[in-house]
Amino acid sequence: METISILPPELIRMLIAVIIIISFLFLNAIMMGYLERKIAAHVQRRPGPMEVGFHGILQLIVDGVKLLGKELLIPFKVDRTLFRVAPLLSFTPVILPLLVIPFSEKLQARDLNLGLIFIVSMGSVNVMALLVAGWGSNNKYAMFGAMRAVAQSIAFEIPILLSMLAVVLMCNTFSLKEIVGAQEKIWFVFLQPLAFLIYVIAGVAETNRAPFDLPEAESELTAGFHTEYSGMGFSLFFIGEYTNMFIVASVAAVLFLGGWHGPHLPYGEYLGIVWFFLKVYFLLFLMIMIRWTYPRVRFDQLLNFAWKYLVPFSFVNILITAVLVKL
């Protein structure tokens, strides 16, 4: 019997969870890529990808194969080590937050009692990856993109944290599972509408999406920090961005939209994942619609908006929450 338990069951469980999560990441990126192109096309009154499969549904798979087959170009004057490490560095911290997200009551790789802080700290490592990519490319566009990414993420990290803190104050825990559990009767979006609004705006900015996509503004910076990347290096950034969007949306679903709660389903503790995914993909749909509806803001408008409106409002919100909770 001793020989059977060479690998501890907990370790095997984590390994399986990581494999499922990584394969989900790729699937999510493919789906999001397709959705984005299709929605963009319909917003602009054109059909979008139509050739490969029914309504172009296999387009992104074909694109993925193309990207896999492409040569990994390394420009002559880049910092070779950093240039190669950066895509991996941007990909790793986006896998880890998914380990603590409760997809449904019993589908969660690991319930950390500091889950929310874990997600936030991994997000800050991600910024480092953009910096390394931008600097390592030895390219002015990439450098400017990276610098904008940092300034933006520093500015928007504060309102995002404060809006999260309002929820944490209400349920007295950082564990995502317990936060969802506290929303059984009423979702926090109804109790904390301002925090939700601030979170969504700052979240869109944090993922570098339009109208806050200044780090990769095509019309000014070619492609921002990943200008010099080709093939899989580019794809890893691409997958990283979509996963980041997924994480921001799922944290919003967990904190404000009641996570897996919804009308009763059989095997609710597992099938709650249906409600969770509905909420997450609704938010992602919203983010895509925002991208194709609003023009890009100017950089000073972006920073002014963060520091002069979002930060004071979130401070007021947290003050009111603290007073009401402790009364």
Binding site: L114, S121, G123, S124, V127, M128, L131, A151
Partner: peptide
């Protein structure tokens, strides 16, 4: 988590920003 959040996520990034 605090070590990662504060030292890697904040201090190092500010330093890199200065260098860039």
């Amino acid at each position: 988590l605090m070590q990662i959040l504060i030292y890697v996520g904040a201090i190092c990034i500010v330093l890199v920003f200065g260098i860039m």
